[in-house]
Amino acid sequence: MGKEHSIELRNVTKTYKRDEFTIPVLTDLDLVVPEGEFLALMGPSGSGKTTLLNLIAGLDNATQGSVIVHGQDLGGMSDGEITRWRSENVGFIFQLYNLIPVLTAFENVELPLLLTNLSKRKRRDNVMTALRAVGLEGREDHYPRQLSGGQEQRVAIARAIVTDPFLLVADEPTGDLDRKSAEEILSLLQQLNKGFNKTIVMVTHDPEAAQRASRLLHLDKGKLVHDEVRNNLEEGVASS
């Protein structure tokens, strides 16, 4: 498989066991996401959006089927291998930012780089580049508590992109933000997608946020029920 299909799911089924019950979450799901796509996942609670996101990000394993990301079959990897793979290929953006409160913005962004062999100076350069990219230059010494929600999410995005992963996964990245901050974050994601060719998979309940994606998938009861490719990327950027 070429890199033009950066994510490919074939006949993926995911079930969870709760006591004696087997709960199907995703059923026989097929999905192809080309490189550089900005994909929004929507659906009601329990539809399997987050589970799908977890499978794509290498945080969970499919019960059946294969998940191939960036040419790598995630199902055949050990825990150590897949952890290393995530550090090199995936950036995570969470609804509640999940910054480390005792670290400054700089140190939070630097965390993933501590896993690399980069020199201190090179790490500093990369962190400052990421912070500049999200518009937080000059706030590097601020602790999360000294930042607004929107700024915290920007730091989280800087942390997600600082290792230059090809894939960004975002779970309701605007879910805890006011409309203005949400618009700024979505514009930033669009810029990363368009300007840096990052593949983005975003779970959202917000139809307005979903409008910013280049493709919109609806899930219901573990199945894809709607797949819509949109061409509004430039509009989205222009309207922000």
């Binding site: 150590g80 952890t83 290393r84 999940n98 965390l111």
Partner: peptide, 15 residues
């Protein structure tokens, strides 16, 4: 949650 975030971003178990 923080530990989960660290592991998600690539911190191995021994680390």
């Amino acid at each position: 949650t923080e530990i989960a975030v660290l592991k998600a971003m690539g911190f191995q178990r021994p680390l």
